[in-house]
Design a protein around this nucleic acid. Structure first.
Length: 558
RNA sequence: GCGCCCGUAGCUCAGUGGAUAGAGCAACCGCCUUCUAAGCGGUCGGUCGGACGUUCGAGUCGUCUCGGGCGCGCCA
């Protein structure tokens, strides 16, 4: 049990002794303080109790304080502050005990037991197989893969999926484009339409195919192979970014298996469709949408939206909880998708759609929309080649998904050194470096033996606190920060916000660097050296576990 | 016009209703005979777009308003 929970229990006990057991206080909390002047943790419980008890919060706080044991073990000091805060200074012994727990849990520190929570299926990226993925897809890819890791860290059974839009207009257009390029390469007459995909992107794929199979009679066949090649290249690129999917789900398969027809029939049975101008429409406006939506075109082909409902039904049949990540430009589809699902008896609250705001570009101080034609288009590959996968992922995960990302190309290129990811990685490398050093000294400290010792005996860690003020302060800050990690993982998971982990790691790195600067780890004092080594080990583990969630490497040296 | 998202330091952004709003970059001043200076310490920088409300307490919640982005196709 964490020191925080232990303190919480003590307070609960004190409160129930004073005011009775049945005090439900949803607004009461115990949280880490921002400044040392307010202790290490604080609770607002006296202020929350003030109204129902009709008493001054300060008086209540004083009473609670009297009922709490202050012996330097769990709690070493309590102070009542202004409006009614109870500020608590955590005892050194409780911290030493907590450090032991971390060493024991090691690479599992901060993580809930695997598959201890419900199943979640996350669908993301799902880019069209029609060419290069831009950094907008990159943002979704990094978010999605980090979220997969994050929810796993929270104990969920998670699977991930990429929905391949290999059906309909887009793929038709891909066939037409490929066919025209094919004809051109054979010096035959060809027609180039305005809305075709860019020649420079499709051309290499067609060329590659023609090396093996020079003759084609059907453009659909050619288009099919081009699509497969593009998919393969997307897969490779995403894997380079540490983005992997458990399943690549084909939209065409959905049509072949009559899943789309089934969905249409069910919607018909439920009287949710009507005919107009030769097309079948969903009564979406009744569901709160801005207008009704076409589900079957007048030429009898189903639209993307009805296929997406069929796809989500398929996902629901495989997993109780769904997360779908979309670019913000798709938010208009949410109401009809959820409305359709709800009307067919699925719980739309079990489908969570995360909208990732768009990425726009900044070049020479001016903002642009990403556009191939205007030359303001940055692909994942370009950026990846420029800054490497770690910096790429950090860049993409750093800011919250609700924020529009304005991507400064020049800054990103410059950022190879300035990127905060190196600050975090350097902290990890420093920890590793100390362990390398210790093996070279004549100190009789064997790392493995030390860790075995640290697993059981808190008295070794008590040596950490025999220090001057500056050392003590740096040490305690670092310990408290490490101990925040499990809470951060939970909070980040609940909020679907892996960027919080990035933020947390930055703060942890700051505390490590601070500790490193003011506390020398390897010294003549053997006990102190052991204790500090243990703390460095705990730090290293925490950074590494956090970076693992973000899909970023934790280098041993830099 | 309607719907979704965002307005926090010069720039990029953090900030589960808590106390004196924080980092990084940029600018300026310091710190390497000792475990990696990709580091540390300090200075400068703010009407949290604005107004009203809820609350013991609001950057955070609500209403309104101003500014920006996106969407409102028989495209996906």
């Amino acid at each position: 049990m964490s020191y925080k929970l232990k303190i919480q229990e003590q307070i609960k006990k004190a409160v129930s002794e004073l005011f009775g057991e049945d005090n439900e206080l949803p607004n009461a909390s115990i949280e880490r303080t921002k400044t040392r002047e307010h202790g290490d943790v604080a609770t607002n419980i006296a202020m929350v109790l003030s109204k129902p008890q009709k008493r001054n919060p300060i008086d209540i706080a004083e009473d609670i304080k009297k009922n709490i044991k202050i012996d330097g073990g769990l709690i070493s000091h309590i102070e009542i502050a202004k409006p009614g805060f109870i500020n608590i200074v955590v005892g050194d012994y409780a911290l030493a005990e907590s450090l032991i727990e971390i060493c024991k849990q090691s690479s599992g520190f901060g993580f809930s037991p695997p598959n201890s929570k419900e199943k979640v299926l996350i669908e993301y990226v799902s880019a069209n197989p029609t060419g290069d993925m831009h950094i907008g897809h990159g943002r979704q890819a990094v978010l999605g893969s980090s979220l997969v890791n994050l929810l796993k860290a929270n104990g969920h059974e998670v699977s991930s999926e990429f929905y391949i839009n290999d059906y309909g207009e887009q793929i038709q257009k891909l066939s037409e484009t490929s066919w025209a390029i094919y004809k051109k390469l054979n010096n035959e007459h060809y027609e180039w339409k305005e809305d075709f995909y860019p020649e420079d992107i499709i051309l290499p794929f067609v060329k590659k195919i023609l090396e093996k199979t020079p003759l084609f009679t059907a453009k659909e066949k050619l288009g099919e192979i081009v699509k497969d090649l593009i998919l393969e290249s997307q897969k490779e690129l995403l894997e380079k970014c540490n983005v992997k999917f458990d399943k690549w789900f084909s939209e065409t398969g959905l049509h072949k298996d009559k899943k789309v027809d089934e969905t249409i029939n069910k919607l018909k049975e439920n009287n949710l469709l009507y005919e107009d101008e030769g097309a079948l429409w969903l009564k979406a406006k009744d569901m709160g949408d801005v207008r009704d939506r076409v589900f079957i075109r007048s030429d009898k082909r189903p639209t993307y939206l009805v296929a997406d409902i069929a796809y989500h039904i398929d996902k629901f049949n495989r997993s109780g909880n769904l997360i779908t990540i979309w670019g913000a430009d798709h938010h208009g589809q949410e109401v009809s998708l959820k409305g359709g699902l709800k009307a067919l008896g699925y719980d739309d609250k079990k489908l969570e759609i995360i909208f990732v705001q768009l990425v726009s570009l900044k070049k020479d101080g001016q903002e642009y929309k990403m556009s191939k034609r205007a030359g303001t288009f940055v692909t994942i590959k370009e950026l990846l080649d420029e800054v490497g996968v770690d910096a790429f992922r950090y860049f993409m995960i750093e800011s919250h998904t609700d924020n529009r990302m304005i991507f400064d190309i020049d800054l990103a290129k410059k950022q190879d050194k300035d990127n905060p990811v190196y600050y975090i990685q350097y902290a990890h490398a420093r920890c590793c470096s100390i362990f390398r050093q210790i093996s070279q000294t004549d100190l009789k400290i064997n790392t493995e033996e030390l860790l075995n010792q640290l697993n059981q005996d808190p008295t070794i860690f008590m040596n950490l606190f025999k220090a001057n003020n500056q050392e003590y302060s740096a040490t305690k800050s670092l310990i408290l920060k490490i101990l925040d990690f499990p809470d951060e993982v939970v909070q980040a998971g609940k909020n679907r916000a892996p960027n919080r982990i990035a933020n947390y790691l930055k703060e942890l790195a700051t505390d490590l660097h601070g500790f490193y600067t003011s506390c020398r780890v390897i010294s003549k004092n053997n006990d102190l050296t052991k204790a500090r080594l243990g703390l460095i080990y705990a730090t290293k583990i925490t950074i590494s576990n956090g970076l693992k969630i973000l899909g970023i490497t934790a280098p041993e040296s830099m």
